[in-house]
């Protein structure tokens, strides 16, 4: 078997709310897991168990209090939990893609430019990146009249397809996906599931949250259970 693409060891995440008298919210404690290329690991557990928090920690948005997040980046393992900002940006450019649950709209920027941006950051020509973006938006059935418009006024499902197109346009070795089908109709949900299957075929390691059990059954190769810490203790 190949080496893991992602190894989490003893990860802890606690939020300290200084404005609420320093209340501590422990969300993750001593969490360890490994994800291999070609796998799709589904995070399961009730709301509040820390599934989205874990994804954000794996992307470097949330600061880990303890533990390691070893990522295979350019052939070497790098610990995101102790990496500096520049290293995390390089990992995000080349190694880890993240499809959040909701699109964070960049004001006034058209959909196709939002989708093309990750390719341009990797040095692709603007022309080629925009063509790839158009192909991705077409595949996700976003009406062509919307491609040149900023997504702020799009429906939830349309915004989510822009978000998915942006996440899948680069063939990242590691992909983090938060509820990719939540606001999609069955036809478009199917397309997303085939995008995930294709990513697995090219050996991407995928960690995802799939609330719908039927969806999870179809895409996940393994499950990882999380429980809220207060109950677990």
């Amino acid at each position: 078997m190949s080496e893991p693409a992602l190894i989490v060891e003893g990860l802890a995440k606690t939020f300290t709310l200084h404005l609420q008298g320093g209340v501590q919210l422990a969300v993750l404690r001593d969490l360890s897991l490994a994800v291999f290329p070609g796998e799709c690991l589904a995070l399961v557990g009730p709301s509040g168990a820390g599934k989205s928090t874990l994804l954000r920690a794996l992307y470097g948005t949330y600061v880990a209090q303890a533990g390691h997040i070893h990522v295979r980046h350019c052939g070497k393992m790098l610990d995101l939990a102790s990496a500096d900002s520049r290293q995390i940006l390089a990992v995000r450019r080349d190694t880890i893609g993240y499809v959040s649950q909701f699109l964070r709209v960049i004001p006034r920027v058209p959909a196709r430019e939002i989708v093309a941006e990750p390719l341009i950051h990797r040095g692709e020509s603007t022309h080629a990146a925009l063509r790839a973006a158009d192909a991705m938006l077409a595949r996700l059935n976003l009406p062509e009249r919307l491609w040149h418009l900023p997504p702020a006024t799009f429906s939830g499902g349309e915004q989510q397809r822009v978000n998915l197109a942006r996440g899948f346009i680069v063939h990242y070795p590691i992909l983090l996906i938060d509820e990719p089908t939540a606001s999609l109709d069955p036809v478009n949900a199917d397309i997303v599931l085939s995008l995930i299957a294709e990513a697995r075929k090219r050996n991407a390691a995928i960690v995802g949250i799939f609330h719908d059990p039927a969806v999870r059954l179809r895409v996940a190769t393994r499950e990882f259970a999380l429980a809220p810490l207060a109950e677990a203790a």
């Binding site: 300290t16 954000r56 470097g60 948005t61 949330y62 600061v63 995390i88």
Partner: peptide, 11 residues
């Protein structure tokens, strides 16, 4: 820190 870290998980 990174922009999203400071804004989404300020320490």
């Amino acid at each position: 820190g990174l922009t999203d870290q400071v804004l989404d998980d300020p320490q």
